[in-house]
Structures are given as structure tokens and as C-alpha cells.
């Protein structure tokens, strides 16, 4: 007596189309109800013709897939400059738990994707920051955390502070606040994920020609010197 291995359950669908003949209308496969012309609605996507052939297989553009992978495992460079770094550390710790977004810190720039500029950038630190940025592999993103990294913040009159890190390296996301709350930093990362995904859709990823830095550090320091002379 033949015993059904599946104990009476329905057989698993096979990865074989049941009908190989071409239908009238030139279609090759059978499609689900409504045909492949039917549109999806809300959370119910339009039936995918491959689903009938090979259920369980996902189809997507390679760009989208890569962007999804990138945006969900953002490794940040362990790099705190000033007060904002404390809030950055708080975000990583148990209470706020940054890990659930796939964000981990990594002490080496060679394996990092994101650089969080958490704190005041002073002119002495400008050169090392640029060096670190250049050591990071592409694609890479920069988040300017706090008003200091955005525009100089409370120290905008100081003789030694760079008026925003975007004078040295290109910045993707600016986070206001002094210091920004952990929630604000999380929001910045969600925005960054959206940006990575939408960039992939618009084929703007890896366009290095747009990622040229504003000014070299040498220029920055010489510009200060001229300011001092004219003053």
C-alpha cells in the first residue's frame, strides 16, 4: 500500500510549469487569475508571473537588492569628536539599541560605510578627518551630527573651529541639535536608508564625480590666514 509521504497533505508545488505550450495571444506561461495585466492594490502586489513558475522566488532589480543590503548593514566608524559623541554612544547602548537597524561600530575606516561626525571639528583635526574619509571604501556616507558639525554651532566665533564639516568633506545628512537626542540620530539613519534606496532607483549611486570635496585642508588653512591678515 502506498503511503503518502506527506500524510495526506497537498503535495508541495513543483518548480515545473505544468504546461509548456504557448497559449493563444503569444503568452508562454499560464498566469494567475486576472492575467498579468491586473494591477496590484495596496499591500497586495500584482501577481508575478514567475511566482506561478517558481513560487518562493523573489525578483528585483539588482541595484535595489544591493541598496537594500547596503542600507540595512551600515557600519559606522568609531569616531567621536566632542559632546555629541556621548549621545552617539548612548544610542548604541542597551536602552536605544542601534543594533536593531543593523548599525554596528567598527574601529577601522577600511571596513566602515558611514562616518558620523559627532562633535566640533577644529582646524587641527581637519586633516585627520579628511584622511579618514579618504581611507573609507566606496560607497560611503557622512552624517554631520549636531550644530557644531553642521555650522560651527556655539563656537561660530572661535578662531580655531571649522564652520561645519562640509568645508572639508561632503555631507549626506545634517542632524540639528546640541546635542541631538538619540532619537534624532536614529531618524538620520532612517533618512540615510531612504536616501540609499532612492539613489539606487535613480541610478545615482557610486557617482563619484559629484562627491568631490569642497576645499582641501591646505586651502582651508590658507583661507584662515587671509582672514587674519585682512582683519
Amino acid at each position: 500500500m502506498a503511503v503518502d509521504a506527506n500524510n495526506g497533505a497537498q503535495n508541495l508545488p513543483l518548480f515545473v510549469p505544468q504546461k509548456w505550450e504557448r497559449e493563444e495571444g503569444g503568452r508562454f506561461f499560464h498566469t494567475g487569475e486576472g492575467g498579468d495585466d491586473s494591477l496590484g492594490k495596496g499591500n497586495h502586489p500584482a501577481p508575478n508571473r514567475i511566482n506561478n513558475v517558481a513560487p518562493g522566488v523573489i525578483t528585483a532589480k539588482l541595484d535595489d537588492l544591493i541598496a537594500m543590503g547596503r542600507s540595512n548593514s551600515l557600519w559606522t566608524l568609531t569616531f567621536g569628536l566632542a559632546c555629541c559623541a556621548i549621545e552617539m554612544i548612548s544610542t548604541h547602548m542597551a536602552h536605544h539599541d542601534f543594533d536593531r537597524f543593523g548599525i554596528v561600530t567598527w574601529p577601522s575606516p577600511r571596513q566602515a560605510d558611514v562616518m558620523i561626525i559627532a562633535g566640533t571639528v577644529v582646524k587641527k583635526m581637519a586633516e585627520p578627518i579628511r584622511l579618514l574619509y579618504e581611507q573609507m571604501p566606496d560607497p560611503k556616507w557622512v552624517i554631520a551630527m549636531g550644530t557644531c558639525a553642521t555650522s560651527g554651532g556655539p563656537y561660530y566665533r572661535s578662531y580655531s573651529v571649522v564652520m561645519g564639516v562640509d568645508h572639508i568633506i561632503p555631507v549626506d545628512i545634517y542632524v540639528p541639535g546640541c546635542p541631538p537626542r538619540p532619537e534624532a540620530l536614529m531618524d538620520a539613519f532612517l533618512k540615510l536608508q531612504t536616501k540609499i534606496k532612492s539613489d539606487a532607483k535613480n541610478h545615482q549611486i557610486d557617482d563619484l564625480s559629484e562627491h568631490t570635496a569642497a576645499a582641501s585642508v591646505a586651502e582651508v588653512t590658507s583661507a584662515t590666514a587671509t582672514v587674519e591678515e585682512s582683519a
Binding site: K124, Y155, R157
Partner: peptide, 14 residues
Amino acid sequence: IGYLHRGTERLAEV
């Protein structure tokens, strides 16, 4: 040191 010298003491004068 000096990688975070923000000039606090001078700024406090203004």
C-alpha cells in the same frame, strides 16, 4: 593634544 581646542576661554570674554 589640541584636537578639540575650541577657544572656550577666549569666547567667554565676549
